[in-house]
Nucleic acid binder design. Structure first.
Lengths: 194, 194
DNA sequence: ATCATTTCATAAACTACTTCATTTTTATTC
DNA sequence: GAATAAAAATGAAGTAGTTTATGAAATGAT
């Protein structure tokens, strides 16, 4: 199990002893997916919270009209899960699909209680990363309200330059909440401006 | 200090002993604001995380064009704070203003470490409510993408009927991400349909 | 009660973005 | 390396939501 990237991520927040790391290894699972495979499908319960060791994922939602809305993209060192489905163990509205061959380390829901009990530091760790996630998600709502499509695209480009290269443009459009045609228009407009 | 509503809220997640409650009382502060007063002003650091005992607040953001965007409304039993500013102790982009005379119980940032140390259960409590907050915020982004303005308004009406009565319509419009004129149009349209 | 201020409603002109239809470019497969 | 499929570009027509302007209704202060 290539757990190193996860451990060094965790060490940014709390320090783990050797024993704690061993205990973690026993309770986490590593899993590889091929490009195109699903980590989660809508209607299923999200049974794991996953950390991306290698690869790229998209989390999306298909609305009543059959329209696909990309809600979140993920690359190395990001977390992916439907947190609502995970904490309540209720069916998810989201799909999580791999855009490349992808390797995840997964925290199973039914091991979380034990993990928190044995390593209370991880309760602190997860509190902190969820706090950060909430702050980031709130900022995203604000951007969606106060920026227009072009500004949102420029922000995205600047914030996640590495992601833009790895995934098709129509998914970025969906993530930004616009059509692929309009994103195309924006890009040609930007190109003209120089 | 009227701490009861907060305690019964907390007891939904974890059970506190009498000693823990006394300790909490020593570390929390109660504060009353008049209608119109600010709990937080943009540029200031958010030094407390507040629970609403009584009253009504709006959290809003003024963009570069001077436009006000209502990001969140709060009534009794809700939490208000700019979590991004709170956890990093950095200047906030948000304002939190009281729409009625309002009473809050506040968790000061500089007491949090002690509180978590003395009552680890509260680390669990805050992890859980932040998880819930994150799930709710994510659902809101999805709604913003996949519902149109009328659908978003109907969802708001159904979800927060008590709030709608208490605050002016133009703030609801701003919360929904539309102009007051367009909300007015939507309402008259709904009225005609019966 | 009255005056001032805030809130709500209505309507016409406008704009950011969508939809639909077609073509060009890029990637994939045999 | 030709054939096929997938992704991106382009343009014309349509729509959801904005802007600006004006008046009516509700609320608050004196």
């Amino acid at each position: 199990m290539n757990i190193k990237p996860l451990l060094s991520y965790i060490q940014n927040f709390v320090e783990l002893t050797k024993e704690e790391i061993s205990f973690l290894k026993l309770n986490l699972t590593s899993r590889k997916y091929l490009k195109g495979q699903f980590v989660l499908q809508q209607g299923d319960v999200c049974k794991t919270s996953s950390f991306i060791i290698k690869g790229c994922t998209k989390m999306f939602y298909v609305d009543d009209d059959g329209q696909e809305h990309v809600f979140m993209l993920g690359i190395e060192d990001w977390w992916v899960s439907d947190i609502g489905s995970f904490i309540n163990q209720t069916p998810s509205d989201f799909n999580i699909q791999c855009l490349e061959d992808t390797e995840l380390i997964q925290f199973p829901f039914d091991r979380m209680e034990d993990i928190y009990l044995k390593i209370p530091k991880l309760e602190r760790f997860f509190r902190k990363i969820v706090e950060r996630g909430l702050a980031a998600t709130q900022r995203r709502i604000i951007r969606n309200f106060s920026l227009n499509a072009k500004e949102r695209y420029l922000f995205f480009k600047e914030s996640y330059p590495s992601i833009e290269q790895r995934i098709p443009q129509y998914m970025i459009a969906s993530y930004l909440g616009i059509t692929k045609e309009f994103l195309s228009k924006i890009k040609s407009q930007i190109a003209q401006e120089g």
